[in-house]
Computed example of a mutant assay.
Amino acid sequence: MRLQRLKRAYQRHMRVNYEHAARPCRLCPTKGICCTDAHFVNVQITRLEAVAIRETLLRTPRLTDEERRAVFHRAQLAVERHGLAVASDAHAQTFSCPLFDAKFGCLVHRRAKPAPCIQHACYENWEDVPPIELQWRVERRIERLNREVYGAAWAWLPLPVWLTLVDPSSDGAQLKRLEREWGARSDVRRSAFLYRESNHRRSLPVLHHR
């Protein structure tokens, strides 16, 4: 799958060129804080990524059926608790990530991790931080893949929102309604909109330790 190959190459680039200067996650005094702090986590994903996350969750042998359902339930709770919605200012919506598991950490780390999460790490010095342009470049490629697969029927949305839209137990009615709305937009206007958004979306902040 091209999306998975793109993400793996991105992860490898981060690991080889930047993560050696970052604080190891295993040394974090609060495990998973960068995933669960609802004050700053604002990761947005696309439809193609949401499907990849869903399929990863459904196929992993690490989770029981009950644990899989719990992930989608956490996503729904995040949408309700934090008032997440399909909106033009979605990049400003923050939440606690439903993909973090206290036992396993990120449930999609190896196969479907979102680009901002791949980019993020805790660095002591700002000069060691990877340039945000790397993330934007990957996200523009992700946009192209989505257009190839879905045409105009997708958007950048908060991760929990997309998980509720592709939830296996959902009747799909909301996604079908959104498909009609997105499909009504012209491809030219939509491409320009996505390019501007990809350059203005906030990414996970870097924790600066003194």
Rank of each mutant, 00 (worst) to 15 (best):
C117E: 04
R5L: 14
N146V: 12
V71S: 09
R12Q: 10
V206C: 13
V16D: 13
M14A: 15
A184Y: 15
A9M: 06
A92I: 04
C122G: 02
L107R: 04
I118N: 08
Y195Q: 14
D187V: 09
R137T: 15
C122H: 10
A70V: 11
A38P: 01
R140I: 09
L194H: 11
R177F: 03
R210I: 05
L145C: 05
F193P: 00
T60K: 08
R47W: 00
F104Q: 06
R196H: 05
V138L: 05
P61L: 05
A87C: 02
V188G: 10
G83V: 08
A70Y: 10
H208L: 14
R54W: 01
P160N: 10
R2T: 13
H209T: 14
Q44T: 06
V166D: 08
A50D: 03
L145Q: 13
K7I: 06
L163I: 10
Y195W: 14
R68I: 04
H39A: 08
S169L: 09
P116V: 11
L27S: 10
A152Q: 02
H91A: 08
R74H: 07
L27C: 10
L99P: 10
R140L: 06
P131W: 01
E66H: 14
N17L: 10
Y195G: 05
H120P: 00
C97P: 15
A115N: 00
S186M: 08
L77V: 14
A152C: 14
D171R: 13
L58Y: 02
P131M: 11
S170E: 08
S191R: 12
L58A: 14
A112R: 00
A9D: 13
I142G: 00
K31W: 02
L48F: 10
V206K: 01
P61S: 11
Q174W: 07
A184E: 13
S88C: 06
R2W: 00
R2G: 03
E80H: 07
P168Y: 09
L107G: 03
S186E: 12
A22Y: 07
T46E: 05
R15I: 03
H13W: 06
R190A: 12
L57I: 15
R23V: 12
I118E: 07
L157C: 02
G183T: 07
D37L: 11
V79G: 03
P130H: 07
G105A: 02
N146A: 12
G105I: 00
E197W: 01
C97D: 02
R196P: 05
E179V: 07
P160R: 03
S96R: 06
A70P: 09
I118P: 05
Q93D: 14
G151F: 06
K31A: 15
E55F: 01
H20R: 14
D167M: 01
R2I: 11
P130D: 12
A152G: 12
